[in-house]
């Protein structure tokens, strides 16, 4: 096809398009006038039904049943014990509103079993330079050693605690990480510049926490006996 013909076709197409609306007007004008048909009652009822049901959300019964079952299963899964808990050593971590809590997974130890806590004894194979113990506490269920530096602005605490029903970690999901230290599954969390390392050993919760450098804290944990 020559260029001239191509150009003519393009012009003609534009003309055809511009006249399409007018042609439609003329074509459909013919149907505007005329006798008014009498619709049957059946048609009128059907139209009434179509319009009254228009834009309503329709649920297929089977789909509704499937949706309900899916919802029940989803809710069941969401609230099931296993779904809400992550295993951590001998414990489960439960995500609560106030913070993450450690909950004893098995039986709560009796007083007799708490003897290990009472024999509160820490051996820290590594203490960062310049830090000295300035406070310690020993109760039936808990003992700790508190260390500070010379300036008094950096500190860390090593705690052993018999786990009662729940032991709460005062964080709300900041910097939470699971790490392995000497084969122990350690729960690391951070809050307001305080890093906390927690792990369990024979129903005892061991915590090492402070505002010192994280690597120093890990060093303490690695060398603790």
């Amino acid at each position: 096809m020559s260029d001239n013909n191509k150009n003519t076709d393009t012009v003609l197409d534009a003309v055809i398009d511009s006249l399409a609306g007018e042609a439609a007007d003329e074509l459909f004008d013919a149907y505007e006038q005329g006798a008014e048909p009498e619709f049957t009652d059946e048609h009128n009822k059907k139209m009434e039904k179509i319009i009254s049901h228009a834009f309503k959300v329709h649920f297929n019964k089977r789909m509704l049943l499937v949706a309900v079952i899916a919802m029940v299963l989803a809710l069941g899964a969401a609230f099931s014990v296993t779904a809400r808990r992550d295993k951590f050593g001998d414990f489960y971590i439960i995500n609560g509103q106030r913070g993450t809590t450690f909950r004893l997974s098995e039986t709560i130890p009796t007083e007799g079993e708490s003897a290990e806590v009472n024999r509160c004894h820490f051996f820290l194979g590594y203490i960062p330079e310049g830090y000295e113990s300035n406070d310690n506490l020993e109760t039936k269920y808990r003992c700790y050693d508190h260390y500070v530096n010379e300036a008094g602005d950096k500190e860390f605490t090593v705690t052993k605690a018999l786990i009662t029903d729940t032991s709460e970690i005062p964080t709300k999901g900041e910097g939470i990480e699971m790490m392995d230290i000497n084969g122990n599954e350690v729960f690391k969390s951070q809050n307001n510049g305080v890093t906390s390392l927690k792990y369990t050993y024979q129903n005892i919760l061991i915590s090492i926490e402070g505002n010192i450098d994280e690597t120093e804290l890990i060093n303490i944990a690695e060398n603790m006996k």
């Binding site: 150009n7 003609l12 003309v15 006249l19 399409a20 007018e22 042609a23 003329e26």
Partner: peptide
């Protein structure tokens, strides 16, 4: 290409063709 002239008569004809 020049054989098709778009005049009023053709406009009416095109509309008829469309219809």
């Amino acid at each position: 290409a020049l054989s098709v002239v778009i005049d009023n008569e053709n406009v009416e004809r095109i509309k008829e063709y469309i219809k």
